[in-house]
């Protein structure tokens, strides 16, 4: 499977327990998929980093228990790889990063902040980042990576 051969969009969906141990296998899987699709090494590194950041947020801030689970949806074709990560939220906290709160969090961030950089890495390293409140009371984070003819394949 190469980027050139893939003209129709394919969709993969899977759910993993809300446990940090599962992040590395997910990274490896999506990293290998990105490699097969033709992304360059730097972009694959970025994709794997964003998976780590977004999934760890979903587990730490958007999952009540390990059994809550996080849902991943991968959509890819010849032009892009789109990754959606959905958590179910916590009873008390609800969605951990409500739509529109990104700017509020951003204003509090400084280089010596110990936490909170993950979602901004996702914003900086992806081509598109959307954060939505989902019907389950949790958060959907959607990132898109477009193929760049000069850098990829």
């Amino acid at each position: 499977m190469t980027q050139a051969e893939k003209t129709e969009q394919e969709i993969l969906k899977f759910t993993v327990p809300s446990c940090l141990e599962y992040i590395r296998p997910i990274q490896v899987f999506i990293g290998q998929l990105a490699q097969q699709l033709g992304f360059c090494r730097t972009r694959i590194y970025d994709i794997e980093l964003i998976i780590d950041e977004v999934c760890s947020n979903a587990i730490e801030h958007g999952s009540e228990t390990p059994n809550s689970g996080i849902d991943l949806t991968l959509m890819f074709d010849s032009s892009k790889l789109e990754i959606h990560v959905r958590d179910k939220g916590k009873c008390v906290q609800g969605n951990w990063l409500a739509t529109g709160r990104l700017d509020e969090v951003s204003q509090k961030m400084t280089p010596d902040s110990e936490r909170g950089h993950g979602i901004f890495l996702a914003e900086k390293l992806s081509d598109s980042l959307e954060i939505l409140t989902n019907p389950l009371g949790g958060t959907d984070v959607q990132v898109v990576f477009y193929f760049s003819p000069s850098n990829d394949s």
Partner: peptide
């Protein structure tokens, strides 16, 4: 080969 912001934050916090 890979590092995330949590690990970097741990080192920043310790240095402070």
């Amino acid at each position: 080969q890979h590092i995330n912001s949590t690990a970097i934050g741990a080192m920043v916090g310790a240095a402070k």
